[in-house]
Write a protein that binds this DNA or RNA. Structure first.
Lengths: 140, 140
DNA sequence: TATATACCCGACTAAAATAGTCAAGTATTG
DNA sequence: CAATACTTGACTATTTTAGTCGGGTATATA
């Protein structure tokens, strides 16, 4: 079980912004250098963050991105949502009229994965971007 | 984020055994039919479960597998361990002398993923195989 | 003792997901 | 008008996943 890099980089980049941001825009180039993330990849990520109203952009020289909300108002769950990264623990398809394993009944472990999913989602619901900065004062 | 099928099938198969088992061995063929899991794949999975002392086997006609411990003594964490399925949330390499992102410092989100990892592991530590059966009396 | 059943084990592979890159822009500032 | 920086979709190499395949070995029962 692993989280994908896009989600991880998104959190990393937004944490970076929370830490370094004042009012003026931060360029992806700066984030790229500080966090060692490919610039081209960051662009892809920020496009989604923008579409989901987590950041806004300013073009041109001295342009860049700014957080729309305060770091202590940004839940990690929002970030994952923006990147379409869902905590998906099930093998079975909830939407389907069929149950799991192609049968019409739910599989024996169905409830378990549901529980786990909530367990993890709760974690991300309760975690704010600002929490990361507090713990990591001494980190780049 | 997703769990792999091997782990899911392992839990499913062991839950099946907990439910249907008395003293006599259960063949993979039966589990395969009841849970709609490929027989060949189950063999692969049970090899690992056996090596890790979760089940023991009897060969030949009427052979099969038996749980070594009681379902209420088998933690889900043990099952994942048997399949080398680790809850891996980090992008950085803990073992390396370097930190994350090829730098010597830990990345800004390092602690976060550590926390999540513990959060999930705790869930699996506290969950027993027997718990699945209780909830799923009415399931196959 | 023959035969069917069922475990044992390593190697292989098609398909999907991941982690990016690339090309070709557009907008803004200095 | 040049440099900077965001915008967007398409493309692709690599890795992982989710299995299959082939060729065993051991045992029970007829």
């Amino acid at each position: 079980m692993k989280l994908n890099t896009k989600s991880r980089y998104a959190v990393m980049a937004l944490a970076d912004m929370s830490k370094f941001s004042r009012k003026k825009p931060i360029s992806l180039r700066d984030i790229s250098l500080r966090q060692s993330i490919s610039l081209l990849y960051l662009e892809q990520i920020f496009l989604k963050l923008k579409k989901n109203n987590l950041v806004k952009s300013t073009r041109g020289t001295n342009g860049g991105y700014v957080l729309i909300k305060d770091p202590n108002e940004i839940k990690l769950s929002e970030i994952f949502l923006a990147l379409d990264e869902k905590v998906k623990t099930l093998g079975c398809n909830k939407e389907s009229k069929k149950g799991c394993n192609g049968k019409f009944t739910k599989c024996i472990t169905h409830n378990l994965w549901d529980e786990l999913e909530s367990h993890i989602n709760t974690f991300f619901e309760n975690k704010k971007l600002s929490d990361l900065i507090k713990i990591n004062q001494n980190r780049i």
